[in-house]
């Protein structure tokens, strides 16, 4: 191949009018992504705004959509972190205090960015399939330049994961007091373990623990931490989807038990 002295910036491309010549079902993945994300957001919105059946006092099951519960509108038993704020008007969900941080963590997540840029913004819908936009500036301008603050949302997600961990510990409450174990406890523990895995596997976390270093050999502990996070990071996409499912399952189970649709399946006490 000959080496050119200057870039050729004129088009002169092969004249192929078709948007893509791909023969596989390239539209399937973005379609499934769009449907699943839309359904999840719709479910979460309904649950957050209805503000019903989010707490099972007997076993101390608190929905992750409502945790931490720090307003006077929450049942007093759910307010483990205290009462920071007075009663909220009915139209204002408690979740408005903390969910924006969780939402921000997911919206700025490198995996979700790929998912919704493809599924919703069609930029591009799939590899080698032309996008419908006339211009493209990527993440160089407002508002998308805010994506660069993902690490701050990661910090908030760590704090909220600590709160979720506390909720899971509290879910070991027995029906007669003391320690107990029910299906709800197991669901909450599984949810929080996976939430931690998703949070720790974050690309910003990988950078913070060691990715920004130039020399690993001078920082052996951080190198080991980076190696661990890198292994988890390879599963970030799977964890992103799994935790959406476990959040939904956890909240749904608590809602059904709280509403009395069925009782909690108790294993011990």
């Amino acid at each position: 191949m000959t080496r050119a002295a200057s870039p050729s910036l004129t088009a002169g491309r092969a004249t192929i009018p078709a948007r893509t010549l791909r023969t596989d079902r390239w539209w399937q993945a973005p379609l499934i992504t769009a449907v699943l994300l839309t359904l999840w957001v719709a479910y979460a919105t309904v649950r957050v705004f209805t503000q019903r059946a989010y707490f099972v006092e007997r076993y101390h099951y608190l929905s992750p959509f409502t945790s931490p519960c720090v307003t006077a509108s929450c049942p007093s038993a759910a307010r483990d972190l205290g009462t920071w704020l007075p009663h909220f008007p009915p139209f204002l969900p408690f979740g408005v205090l903390f969910l924006p941080f969780l939402l921000g963590f997911r919206v700025t997540c490198y995996y979700y960015r790929r998912a919704y840029y493809r599924a919703f913004w069609q930029s591009p819908p799939a590899c080698a399939v032309a996008e419908p936009h006339g211009k493209y500036s990527g993440e160089t301008r407002f508002p998308l330049i805010i994506q660069n603050l993902h690490r701050y949302f990661f910090g908030a997600a760590v704090l909220l994961s600590l709160v979720n961990t506390w909720d899971a510990i509290r879910a070991f409450q027995g029906k007669t007091g003391g320690i107990g174990l029910g299906l709800g406890t197991l669901i909450m523990v599984a949810n929080v373990v996976l939430l931690w895995a998703y949070t720790v596997s974050c690309h910003s976390c990988r950078h913070i623990v060691g990715g920004r270093l130039r020399s690993f050999s001078r920082h052996p502990i951080r190198y080991r931490a980076w190696t661990f996070v890198s292994k988890l990071n390879a599963k970030h996409m799977q964890l992103a989807w799994t935790t959406l499912a476990t959040l939904l399952i956890t909240d749904g189970y608590i809602a059904l038990v709280s509403a009395g649709v069925f009782g909690d399946l108790r294993i011990y006490n």
């Binding site: 490198y110 960015r113 790929r114 840029y117 493809r118 930029s123 591009p124 590899c127 080698a128 493209y136 500036s137 990527g138 993440e139 160089t140 998308l144 330049i145």
Partner: peptide, 10 residues
């Protein structure tokens, strides 16, 4: 132009 990349992984 790193900011143009929207990490869609193609």
């Amino acid at each position: 132009g790193l900011g143009y990349c929207n990490i869609t992984k193609c």
